[in-house]
């Protein structure tokens, strides 16, 4: 290859086509990526969705328990969409069990879809997650850890692509003001989730929850941040309806321009 490239500065069209077909074949082998169903999100992701055989990391935006709950629900929603065929199960591995299963059911992870594995320390959780990934019988694995070094994430990424099972690694905060995503990792995507004020309703009550999600890093793509409405009962996110005076004007301007 290098010799061929040396012939001219720019690669030929055939070479590019060959490379494209190779990449397409590799991607087809990995299975389709799981799209969020939101154009603003999917178009900015390199795979147009979450890779179904890769490691995805997420963390709460701050160490408060609210952001922690938001990140948990974000992970649960993705896991629920990975497991939306009947009979498919996900594994949730953790060290300290404080999840409330009725709450998980409300984003689509019913009690028949999920089983938990409680390890004594992070190393055990990572080992169980790896076992679950290599087995290949799970729809998704969620692992909650406080610390996982580069080697551990590399292992998880390899296991995920071997077993063709996605893994969501949820890094919990260890200290108050250090983001757990500062450590290097070989994840496909890394997300940071925080709570945002919900839309005020015209009557008394709490509107649909909103989260500010931030893609900190992704392979072959750029970071971005976005505000979305929280998962519904099948785990799907939604874009908040834009305020009237802002949404209408640019559309009309575009029409006039065209």
């Amino acid at each position: 290859m290098p010799a061929e490239f040396a012939l001219s500065d720019r690669p030929h069209a055939e070479q590019l086509a060959v490379l494209r077909t190779q990449i397409a074949a590799a991607q087809a082998e990995r299975g389709p990526a799981l799209a969020f169903g939101i154009d603003a999100l999917d178009s900015r992701l390199a795979d147009h969705g979450l890779d179904g055989a890769g490691l995805h990391e997420l963390a709460a935006a701050s160490s408060t328990l609210n952001d922690d709950a938001a990140a948990t629900l974000f992970a649960a929603g993705i896991a629920a969409r990975f497991a939306n065929k009947p009979g498919f199960t996900i594994l949730w591995a953790l060290t300290r069990f404080d999840l409330y299963a009725p709450g998980l059911e409300q984003v689509g992870l019913g009690p028949d879809r999920i089983f938990y594995a409680q390890g004594r320390k992070d190393a055990e959780v990572l080992a169980m997650a790896e076992d679950g990934l290599r087995d290949g019988s799970l729809a998704c694995v969620v692992a909650e850890v406080k610390a996982a070094d580069q080697t551990a994430t590399r292992r998880l990424q390899l296991a995920a692509s071997d077993g063709k099972t996605p893994i969501l690694l949820y890094r919990r905060h260890r200290s108050r003001d250090r983001c757990p995503l500062e450590q290097p990792s070989s994840a496909m995507t890394r997300w940071r989730i925080g709570c945002a004020p919900s839309t005020r309703l015209p009557y008394a009550g709490v509107g649909r929850e909103r989260w500010s999600i931030e893609l900190v890093r992704q392979r072959s793509g750029n970071p971005f941040s976005l505000e979305v409405e929280a998962c519904d009962d099948t785990g799907r996110l939604a874009l908040p309806a834009a305020a009237l005076h802002r949404a209408v004007a640019p559309v009309r301007a575009l029409h006039q321009a065209a």
């Binding site: 328990l65 922690d68 709950a69 948990t72 629900l73 649960a76 404080d98 999840l99 409330y100 299963a101 009725p102 709450g103 998980l104 059911e105 409300q106 984003v107 019913g110 009690p111 028949d112």
Partner: peptide, 11 residues
């Protein structure tokens, strides 16, 4: 499952 009253995710 459980009845569909609104429930938190962490208790």
């Amino acid at each position: 499952g459980w009845p569909r009253w609104k429930r938190p995710v962490r208790l």
